[in-house]
């Protein structure tokens, strides 16, 4: 076991280009065990790409990604994924499976396998926690609204009680009340289950509800990083412009 000082996940100078497009230009970022990190930043700055690089879904060009201080080899990544959950920006539900089979995906196969009835009961319980009734359990993803799909994706991410969770825009497309429910749920997972979470969001009320630490990605680097309490007096004009949603400022809105 590593000591408490070693971050759970650490990125050192990670860069990634798609052709001539330099998306990440040396991202340095660390998340401690049991910490909730929120990443903010303009649309298209590479927040989702950063998560996919950590997961190895997109190979990064240079830099290092460490898990508990050790480089992430494919074997260690596979072991990490066993206690991992992710909500994708677009939901990424399996449309050939019903809602409950989506949520219980991990519980129906692999090492965490349970009997079908038990897996279903667990899935229905997770659905309840994201504000969905048992009546949606037998529907198919295509029959749900966008916000409902997102919540099913969230239920799937947390179904097997993961220790590391990534949420890509968990509250986008939800009504304000439901967004509040989801914020509370994410906070609860971190505080009560001790999970380590990285959340991407554009929703400032979500940032304040979820984050221990906030990091802002801008032009391929982490522009600012600090505790959520310092968000309002960060002293960084980029962060100020972003959190207040001003069109004028150092970040050019119209290119």
């Amino acid at each position: 076991m590593s000591d408490a000082g070693t971050p759970m996940i650490e990125l050192r100078g990670v860069s990634k280009s798609f052709g001539a497009k330099h998306v990440l230009r040396g991202v340095d970022l660390a998340v401690a065990r049991g910490e909730s990190l929120v990443v903010i930043g303009g649309s298209g700055t590479g927040k989702s790409v950063t998560l996919k690089c950590i997961l190895g879904l997109i190979p990064h060009d240079s830099g290092q990604i460490l898990l508990e201080g050790q480089p992430l080899t494919p074997e260690r990544r596979a072991r990490m994924l066993e206690r991992f959950g992710m909500l994708f920006q677009g939901g990424a539900l399996f449309d050939s499976l019903s809602v409950w089979e989506n949520v219980a995906f991990r519980l129906l196969r692999g090492p965490a396998r349970r009997p079908r009835a038990e897996a279903r009961a667990l899935a229905v319980d997770k659905l309840r926690r994201v504000g969905l009734g048992p009546d949606v359990a037998d529907l198919y993803p295509a029959e749900l609204s966008g916000g409902m799909q997102k919540r099913v994706g969230l239920a799937r991410a947390i179904a097997a009680d993961p220790q590391i969770i990534f949420f890509d825009e968990p509250t986008t497309g939800l009504d304000p009340i439901m967004a509040g429910v989801i914020n509370d749920l994410i906070r609860e997972l971190v505080t009560e289950m001790g999970a380590t979470a990285i959340t991407i969001t554009h929703d400032m009320s979500s940032v304040r509800a979820i984050a221990d630490t906030v990091a802002m990605l801008h032009e391929g680097r982490i522009r600012w990083r600090g505790p959520v309490s310092r968000l309002d007096d960060s002293g960084d004009p980029y962060v100020d412009q972003f959190i207040h949603g001003r069109a004028e400022g150092p970040i050019e809105a119209v290119r």
Binding site: K52, L55, L81, M86, F88, A92, L93, R109
Partner: peptide, 16 residues
């Protein structure tokens, strides 16, 4: 379609 809608990526994150 599964590739484009990230369902294939989602499988990997579910250890499959």
């Amino acid at each position: 379609t599964m590739r484009v809608t990230e369902q294939i990526d989602a499988l990997t994150t579910l250890s499959t």
